[in-house]
């Protein structure tokens, strides 16, 4: 039986960058008990001899020539930005390592 604890859900929420209250975590964990049992049925027939399908059509080698086309203007690029400065996207301080 597949199940997820509150902490498992909290870990997933961190990976997915979604703030969740304790209540949300608990609710989701209990919903997942039901949902995971339903979806885990795929394992009944997914045997080793079956190849996975990731693309519905058997297309191969679809390429674009290396030719430059016009870009957006910076005004268009930034038109939806919550904040901008000097034609750059302005974002809150980034916590993390220096590149």
């Amino acid at each position: 039986m597949s199940s997820l604890s509150r902490d498992d859900v909290a870990h997933l929420a961190r990976l997915a960058r979604i703030e969740m209250t304790d209540e949300e975590l608990v609710n989701l964990a209990s919903e997942f008990d039901v949902i995971l049992n339903a979806v885990a049925r795929v394992q009944e027939v997914a045997t080793a001899d079956v190849a996975p399908t990731s693309h519905p059509l058997p297309l191969r080698n679809v390429f674009r020539p290396d030719v430059v086309a016009p870009s957006l203007t910076p005004e268009e690029a930034l038109s939806g930005a919550p904040a901008s400065e000097e034609n750059r996207f302005k974002v809150p301080q980034i916590l993390g390592e220096e590149a």
Binding site: A69, S71, L72, P74, A77, L78, E86, R88
Partner: peptide
């Protein structure tokens, strides 16, 4: 995408959707 790769352009002038 087809944006130019030229180095040193003005910010966000070589961007597209």
């Amino acid at each position: 995408c087809s944006c130019s790769t030229i180095f040193g352009g003005q910010p966000n002038t070589q961007t597209c959707p």
